[in-house]
Design a protein around this nucleic acid. Structure first.
Length: 423
RNA sequence: GGAGAGAUGGCAGAGUGGUCGAUUGCGGCGGUCUUGAAAACCGUUGACCUGCAAGGGUCCGGGGGUUCGAAUCCCUCUCUCUCCGCCA
């Protein structure tokens, strides 16, 4: 979340920048400042009362020790009064704090100054494009037919076992999944990331910290009996490793990579968007997460973008990079690049990665700090990106590499698959 | 799942009703000594809120209670450890 001090000192700027995210912040910001004023005022009164009480308690103790119990008893009566006052004050203090927090936690992150204005994905800015977009061959088959033809993925049985959006991978389809996961992990290790294996379920505190709660709870599967959430991305558990911690400046940047299955309810989707591998309830993803010094976080973001595009290049997939417009950005992000691969048989771009800088938004929520070069407390920036999400990569690989005799596996992947053709 | 023990600062570990935000050791930081380092010695070393500052307030796993006063007593929750049971 945004820091209170920043909001107080830059009210108009905050409102203006939130507008780029199509968030009308005028009333909310005013309310926040008002509540915070009340909070400070109440706290001052409360502190004064408590200070008085502390003095009295000390005096009473001394009086008792020196045997002047009559005087002590007299003072005790004063304390009762103080306590009465403090009690009601404390109650309103807690109420104010709660209300302030509830409002504050729903304010999105401020977009970076370079974020383009816009409301829909059409307003995203194409930063770069690479690779040959081959015209769709008349014989080109979409991946959902290819997976059936070569018996790679069984959507019907997955549906029987669980439901729509839970595919069953089989044979070379399953092996391709495993190969991609390994390929992505090994590449990340070479690039200096440390591998971690996080839990697939998180508690509410973790989901709050990265920004999935309170507003996006409907997008997560919730295990009610134990009040846990299935992770929508490894970002949640991996970033939460550092919740409530104080890092040293020399520990930055922290670079973690994790493979996990991801679970998304994605209520409300329909049509061709959800066909085949385009949108699933359970999918595999390798995620990179960095915690960076605020001075360098945008260099880190560029480095992560370059890393992800490097992966796409190695897989031989045509891709483009988008800088998301304000309206298409996530609640928590300050700047996001999306990577899309060209799916030749569907003749459309498929989002396969999203790389974001959250600046201090998550750090602030999760009380992640670091001691800077001067020994001062400071908040680091958190960043993450998919590197990469599997299903749409598989879709593009199948569609783009199809030939009459089967599907070619990109050379970079062959050491991991153990086969170079699917036929 | 059953029984017992415990949760204190970066770590270890004292503290069982008042001057305890907390003894001490290790670690960290600064210094003396040294060509340099080590050792030794000296000093320093928690976080948060509030305030221009001085200061004030809060925090000893979380929440609640008793008391003029709680790290210390009571209730409750969570977690950890030991033993037993079960088990990939």
């Amino acid at each position: 979340m945004l820091s209170l001090n920043y909001i107080r000192e830059h009210q108009q700027e905050v409102i203006d920048r939130l507008a780029i995210k199509n968030f009308n912040g005028k009333e909310v910001i005013q309310k926040i400042v008002l509540l915070d004023d009340q909070r400070r005022e109440t706290q001052k009164k409360l502190d004064d009362l408590q200070a008085q009480g502390n003095v009295l308690a000390k005096e009473i103790g001394l009086l008792f020790q020196s045997g002047k119990s009559a005087e002590a008893t007299l003072l005790k009566e004063q304390t009762a009064e103080l306590k009465e006052k403090a009690k009601s004050l404390d109650q309103s203090f807690e109420e104010i704090k709660k209300e302030l927090d509830e409002v504050l936690v729903r304010v999105p992150n401020l977009p970076h100054p370079s974020v383009p204005t816009g409301k829909t994905p059409d307003d995203n800015l194409v930063v770069s494009q690479e690779g040959e977009i081959v015209p769709v061959a008349a014989t080109a088959v979409p991946h959902w037919d290819l997976t059936t033809k070569y018996d790679l993925i069984d959507f019907i049985t997955g549906n029987k076992i669980t439901g729509a959006g839970f595919p069953l991978y089989k044979g070379k389809g399953a092996r391709l999944q495993r190969a991609l996961i390994n390929f992505f992990l090994e590449e990340a290790l070479k690039a200096g990331y440390q591998e971690v294996q996080p839990p697939y379920m998180v508690n509410a505190a973790s989901a709050y910290a990265t920004g999935q709660l309170p507003d996006k709870d409907a997008q997560m599967y919730h295990v009610g009996l134990d009040d846990m959430y299935l992770i929508p991305t490894a970002e949640v558990p991996v970033t939460n490793i550092y919740r409530d911690t104080i890092l040293k400046a020399q520990e930055l940047p922290v670079r973690n990579v994790a493979y996990s299955a991801c679970f998304r309810r994605e209520a409300g989707s329909y049509g061709k968007d959800v066909r085949g591998l385009n949108r699933l309830h359970q999918f595999d993803k390798v995620e990179i997460v960095q915690i960076a010094h605020p001075d360098h976080s945008y260099d880190v973001l560029e480095e992560m973008k370059a890393y992800v595009t490097g992966l796409l290049r190695k897989l031989g997939l045509p891709f483009r990079v988008l800088k998301l417009c304000g309206g298409d950005m996530s609640f928590t992000s300050a700047l996001t690049y999306d990577m899309e691969v060209w799916s030749s048989a569907q003749a459309r771009w498929l989002e396969v990665s999203s790389v974001s800088n959250f600046e201090t938004f998550q750090s602030n929520r999760m009380k992640l700090r670091f001691r800077d070069e001067n020994g001062k407390m400071n908040m680091p920036h958190t960043l993450n990106g998919s590197a990469l999400a599997l299903p749409r990569i598989v879709a593009a690989l199948l569609e783009n590499n199809q030939a009459p005799d089967g599907i070619r596996i990109p050379p970079a992947l062959v050491p991991y698959t153990g086969f170079d053709m699917i036929s």
